[in-house]
Amino acid sequence: MAVSWLKKLAEYVCILVAVSALIFFMIHLFSPTDPISVIVGGKGSTPEIIENARKKFYLDQPVWKQYLIWVQGILHGDWGVSYKYQTPVLESILSRAPVTLGLVIGASVLSVGAAIPLGVLSAVKKDRPADRIISILSLVLAAIPPFLLSLLMVFALSKAAPQYPIAGGYEGVGGYLWRMLAPCIALACAKITITLKVTRQGMIEEMKKPYMMNVEAKGMPEANRIWKHGLKNAVIPVISILSVQIGAMIVGAVLVESVFSLSGIGSFLIDSIKASDYPVVQAIILMLVIVFLLASAAADGLYSLIDPRIRARKGK
């Protein structure tokens, strides 16, 4: 058991090293703008100021050395300093994290919460009206891009429920959840379809397996067959889909954030790319990679929690 965990850990460390190098060198070697112009901005800059700035941001060092300094900093909890704001990157990111995290987690919960029951229903009622209706609705949802849905929702909400906070800040946990609800729905809708289809397909295959006939021969009621045996087996591919979808969600979050005027990490990333604020860009991308790895580690853990055969293979 310990060995397999160590292996996995080593794998993740390798991925992190490779990806961080890729991000860093791509940005610094192929940058179209000179960072120094971002740092000193348009102010009447003397050669002296420029020289100081170069020193402060290690731009006088060769790129490989800058990379090492960056990595070393991260290991000590220092994610670098923004060119544009001259403030620590980590601070700016953390202050925006609740919005994006809330958006991604909330949208995941909503989309899974809708997709799995609907997928099961769809599989049980295969080829019957309920299945057809669900299938058409889910295709419509998949066809509407999140930003369009966000815009439509903002319009609709401002007309139908003017008291709903589609912009501005929030107060307390209740206020936060209420404020996040609409953007979460906007982000969740497009993600329902794939999860639903995978659940439906998995359930249909599972209900056809020979052991299902045995469960039926035992006299177990249909609810037991569907929810205890069918869904637990069918949910395994759904988990892998979800762990990949988290990445796509972050991309979607960028657009939803800007429509609902939430200052989250997504819009921060876009702004920083536009401003060539590289420390912010590379920090956010690296964090996204870490989130991705965490999601896949969580998926791995869930697999072995669900499937004793995977657990047995890992134990060896």
Partner: peptide, 16 residues
Amino acid sequence: AMVSQNPMAAFDPLYT
């Protein structure tokens, strides 16, 4: 009660 042909397929793999 009925015992079916393939013992390997008689049980759900995820439960004891």
